[in-house]
Design a protein around this nucleic acid. Sequence first.
DNA 1: GCAGGATGTCTAGCGTTGCTAGAATTCGCT
DNA 2: AGCGAATTCTAGCAACGCTAGACATCCTGC
Lengths: 197, 197
Amino acid sequence: MSAISERRERERAHRHQLIITAARELAETEGWEAVTTRRLADRVEYSQPVLYSHFNGKDAIVSAVALDGFGELATHLRRARQAAPGPAHALRAVCRAYLDFATERPALYQAMFILPTELTFASAETPAPLRACFDEFVSCFPPANERRELFAEVLWGALHGIAVLSESGRIPPAGQEERIDLLVTRFADSPASPGTP
Amino acid sequence: MSAISERRERERAHRHQLIITAARELAETEGWEAVTTRRLADRVEYSQPVLYSHFNGKDAIVSAVALDGFGELATHLRRARQAAPGPAHALRAVCRAYLDFATERPALYQAMFILPTELTFASAETPAPLRACFDEFVSCFPPANERRELFAEVLWGALHGIAVLSESGRIPPAGQEERIDLLVTRFADSPASPGTP
DNA sequence: GCAGGATGTCTAGCGTTGCTAGAATTCGCT
DNA sequence: AGCGAATTCTAGCAACGCTAGACATCCTGC
């Protein structure tokens, strides 16, 4: 149970990641409806049952892809926020970065926010990347605002709504910039945050 | 081709609606994943192929349910708006009504906004009920606001995002009222709408 | 009243899906 | 070399959306 099983475990971990990236690539090129366990097994050059020795089922694979996506989204948002010339522009930068992410990686975004997921949100065992994403939204508002979390929730919801409605053609795909404009001007913190009476 | 075929056509139309309501009931009690063509055919006491003589496929049935949903949502929103004590309260009333609708009829809401649909949004041949829903949001803003439509789009997006994120547990289901509060205060029209320079 | 034809409905089945039991194989160890 | 265990594959299940072709039903014209 030494070097030999260590190597096996390493190989196993490698294959684990291989499955995830294969699923993601397949989804990004042909959409999630093309990601079947058979095609995925083909892609990783193993038979179907090995997928089930790594994941509890297809949903777990999708969730694993989604988790990677949250990690990437978190760094994407942080970079945008930190590159902004000042806190006043941070909000806009993060909003734009979020919508960019959603439109440029639609499959990944679907895995994160639309497909059934096994990830636990807003709870004690919420994975760090999810929390990091949320924190990026929180950081768009000054610490003086006692309701930053609420602001972050609503802003996130608004961005998600805009992203998904435009992606599915329920609102015109054009005009995203104006929507960001409106959202930003509406959410830019007022001088004194309206406190609860 | 007279009374006899008229009756047949009547019966056919009746069965058409029967399928739609059966699909909706099944979805509302057991969720859309339980709505299979076999179970639906069982429910309406016909064999599977008759479904396909009425609809092009399962998606078309879902879309028909969604269309009914849009009709109901439009009247729901209009009632709320008109019952509000004044235009200042209309915005809040409509927002609340929208989120109520989403949480009280989750299956219907899914058919309208989440499941793949054949309905055409934001186009020339957009069905009237969809347009009516959108118009309700537009009516929340004074005609003096030259960008009412943009406001409506973003508000709708925000509400949709909040609805779907909380429904799927991605933000805590509690605290909806505070989110409405924030959204309303942020979107309540400023005295002079910030015009484009 | 009764054959003929059109209309409508059902039975049966195709290909695919997610998932799994049990056979077969491989591989390290003594 | 051969045993034992871990791993991988073959084969198959039940359910899915959808459809072709057999079957029944009903109106029409004689």
